[in-house]
């Protein structure tokens, strides 16, 4: 059972949901409608949501992503709201939580700037290595090497800490 109220959920996540959806649809009316759909689904599932099994943020994020996927699959035609509710079991990627973002930020800070930039341009901005090479005016070969080094360094950094990390799944003593 969840302790979070509908009001608190709406207050905390409305802007994030709307902003994310608007970024993907570029249409204010669609974004408003879809945001409403997200919260309708969330309110309907709220009683059954188990906060001990998944974070609220990840749960809302999953509902939002599913809603967006349905929207694009339907070709933007509005239909009856899906009756399915999203339980804690439906959430993929248990590492998708606020704490992991902090871990990533800490790990990225440890990287040399040149490696960090490649990771951000590749995985946040979605650029190919060729595009990164052109943007940074560095040879493709060099970008490829730095990219590989950056991934290896991140893997190592995220494995340390004396706890199970969601990334590597290894338990460190």
């Amino acid at each position: 059972m969840s302790c979070i109220t509908e009001e608190k959920l709406y207050e905390e996540y409305h802007d994030k949901v709307f902003g994310y959806i608007f970024n993907h649809t570029s249409n204010k009316e669609d974004a408003e409608d879809l945001t409403n759909d997200v919260f309708l689904k969330a309110f309907r599932s709220l009683e059954r949501f188990d906060e001990s099994r998944a974070s609220v943020s990840t749960w809302i994020f999953t509902i939002m992503k599913n809603t967006l996927t349905d929207h694009f699959r339907r070709g933007h035609i509005s239909e009856e709201l899906n009756e399915d509710y999203v339980s804690s079991d439906d959430i993929e990627g248990s590492y998708l939580k606020k704490e992991t973002l902090e871990e990533i930020a800490r790990a990225l800070k440890e990287l040399p700037e040149e490696q960090r930039d490649i990771i951000i341009l590749r995985y946040y901005d979605g650029l190919s290595l060729t595009e990164i090479s052109e943007k940074l005016r560095i040879s493709y070969g060099m970008i490829k090497i730095r990219h590989k080094k950056a991934l290896a360094a991140l893997e190592k950094l995220l494995s340390y800490g004396g706890k199970i990390t969601e990334f590597s799944g290894k338990l460190k003593q």
């Binding site: 606020k98 973002l101 990533i104 800070k109 990771i119 946040y124």
Partner: peptide, 22 residues
């Protein structure tokens, strides 16, 4: 790599300040 993509997608939603600065 896939996990990084998903995490950065999640960052677009959560807007972690430290990551935003980087």
């Amino acid at each position: 790599e896939n996990k990084l993509r998903q995490l950065f997608d999640y960052q677009r939603f959560e807007q972690n300040d430290n990551l935003n600065k980087l």
